[in-house]
């Protein structure tokens, strides 16, 4: 009994920690740029695929599997390059447009990236093979927990901590918060809004790509993973509250654990349950658990 609960709990937290990264990126971009980025799942998928490429190269030049986390993180960071490209190349044209068009532009991105992935990596699932098990398995109260999962959980907590620090203690964080409260005011106070937008969007992108890169040893990369993930990330931010980091954290935990509980208890219910919760939250607390915007 204890062993099952521990198992479910850890797998839930593992899902949650990856979900949190993507959702945090979504929230950050929504908070500052007021754009709900449907393509955040695509960044996650890109992170996963490039992660595989980097890990394979790392292993082929004799890198020890236990250090595979390094090429994975590298893959996530390398993909930061697409942030400025997308923000400067596309998004900046629609900031003053109706929100519907902003949403649709990110939808267009999602369509493009999905096919770019297929174009580069094909349609067959890819995986990092041995890396996941190279980390070994830990016995906690009789439950076998893959050590890699624990590493991801820790990594995610560290990133969350760094984010919290940046947002509340640095100049950049204060500017971000000021801009998300009132971007006209921020502009009037001499903040270079374009500069902030590029940085924030890139940060949001990197959170997504790292999320994808970190998750990939535990699963296989598939072209549908982007679309599947955006639906989950969407559930997370709706439950937590749009634009709230705390909301992303709690929402991710809720969705992650819920997912693994229902998967263990009654798999038929998995997604159904999540949607029902999303709808209930939207109906009774449309601003989400921690949201401020209405």
């Amino acid at each position: 009994m204890v062993e099952t609960i521990v198992n479910i709990l850890f797998s839930g937290i593992f899902h949650a920690s990856v979900l949190f990264l993507v959702a945090a990126g979504l929230q950050l971009v929504f908070g500052v740029q007021k754009i709900f980025n449907l393509a955040c799942g695509s960044f996650y998928a890109l992170g996963a695929y490039l992660g595989i490429v980097f890990v394979k190269y790392f292993l082929s030049v004799g890198g020890p599997p236990v250090l595979a986390i390094l090429p994975l993180l590298a893959a996530g960071f390398v993909l930061a390059i697409i942030g400025p490209i997308i923000e400067r190349g596309l998004l900046r044209f629609v900031y003053d447009r109706d929100v519907h068009f902003q949403l649709l532009l990110t939808f267009a991105l999602l369509l493009m990236i999905e096919d770019i992935i297929k174009l580069i990596w094909g349609t067959y699932p890819l995986s990092t093979q041995g890396v996941y098990l190279a980390f070994g398995i830990l016995d906690i109260f009789g439950a076998s927990i893959p050590v890699y999962n624990l590493i991801v959980i820790v990594a995610s907590i560290v990133i969350a901590g760094i984010m919290a620090h940046i947002l509340s203690n640095t100049r950049f964080g204060r500017i971000i918060r000021a801009t998300s409260d009132n971007n006209e005011m921020a502009q009037a106070l001499g903040i270079n809004i374009n500069n902030i937008y590029v940085k924030v969007f890139t940060l949001g992108t990197v959170l997504g790509t790292i999320g994808g890169a970190l998750v990939i040893p535990s699963t296989a990369a598939m072209s549908e993973m982007a679309v599947d993930l955006i639906v989950l990330a969407f559930a997370v931010v709706v439950i937590g509250g749009l634009g709230s980091m705390k909301g992303a954290f709690v929402g991710a935990l809720l969705v992650g654990i819920l997912k693994s509980v229902s998967f263990a208890v009654y798999p038929e219910l998995e997604m159904l349950l999540i949607y029902i919760i999303v709808i209930v939250v939207l109906v009774f607390k449309p601003q989400g658990l921690f949201g401020t915007a209405t």
Partner: peptide, 20 residues
Amino acid sequence: IEYWRLIFGALLAAIVILSP
């Protein structure tokens, strides 16, 4: 080609930006 969504995405982006 198999990748019609790529072209569709580009088309949609162009429409949204250039000619809503």
